[in-house]
Design a protein around this nucleic acid. Structure first.
Length: 198
DNA sequence: GAAAAGATTACCT
DNA sequence: GGTAATCTTTTCC
């Protein structure tokens, strides 16, 4: 498995600039971890918005907290599309974005670190989308092919990874499916606890 | 058709 | 740390 995983980690298009289908077509927890440190780039009218992903959550099969738990609906249909599809949904007054892995599973993108000092704060799933300009109309975009939304492999080592329970879920709340770069200041609240305390 | 719940955020004490 | 805002989607009668 390690061999297959390593191959998927390197999976990218012909120019080696973005993550390919095989990267997303893996167990969701693996993808959630592997996305930490990856670069998410969204093309807008006034240029690209870019972050390095620093916090993700996995939503898996037989997961009562997942939007796909009860099967396809109008809202969650993108979760049943190809691996690498963007699933965007609205909650309260904001939108949140996921990258689909295998059928009915996805990784929620919770926070990013800006590539260069710029206005805005991509800490939190709603703020991340606002920062990047991701809209509800981007739901269903294929991030493997789209010229607007691209995911690039991480450049180098990304530091220690913190694992803990997901945020804001009322069911299956104890499962440790939240992943974050422990030392990054843009990881959203509640912040990971430092090892040694519980 | 009505009601409840929600993968959040901003602002309060 | 707690709660209100706010409105769509889903579910239930």
């Amino acid at each position: 498995m390690a061999r297959r995983s390593a191959t998927a980690e390197r999976s990218s298009d012909a120019r080696g600039r973005r993550l390919g289908r095989a990267f997303f077509d893996r167990p969701t927890v693996s993808v959630a971890r592997a996305l930490l440190g990856a670069e998410l780039r969204v093309r807008g009218a006034d240029g690209d918005r870019v972050v390095r992903l620093v916090e993700t959550e996995a939503y898996v099969a037989d997961d009562p907290a997942s939007h796909a738990y009860r099967g396809p609906t109008q809202r969650n249909r993108s979760m049943f599309h190809l691996p690498g599809t963007l699933y965007v949904y609205r909650i309260h007054q904001v939108v949140c974005a996921n990258l689909v892995t295998r059928q009915g599973e996805a990784v929620l993108l919770r926070a990013g670190s800006p590539r260069r000092p710029v206005e805005g704060n991509p800490s939190g799933p709603g703020r991340l989308c606002r920062f990047l300009g991701i809209r509800l109309e981007d739901d269903g975009t294929d991030a493997v092919r789209s010229p607007r939304v691209r995911v690039r492999p991480r450049a180098g080592p990304s530091g220690p990874v913190w694992v803990g329970p997901r945020v804001g879920v009322s069911r299956a709340g104890r499962r440790r499916l939240r992943f974050a770069l422990r030392d990054d200041p843009y990881v959203s609240r509640p912040r990971p606890r430092v090892p040694g305390r519980r």
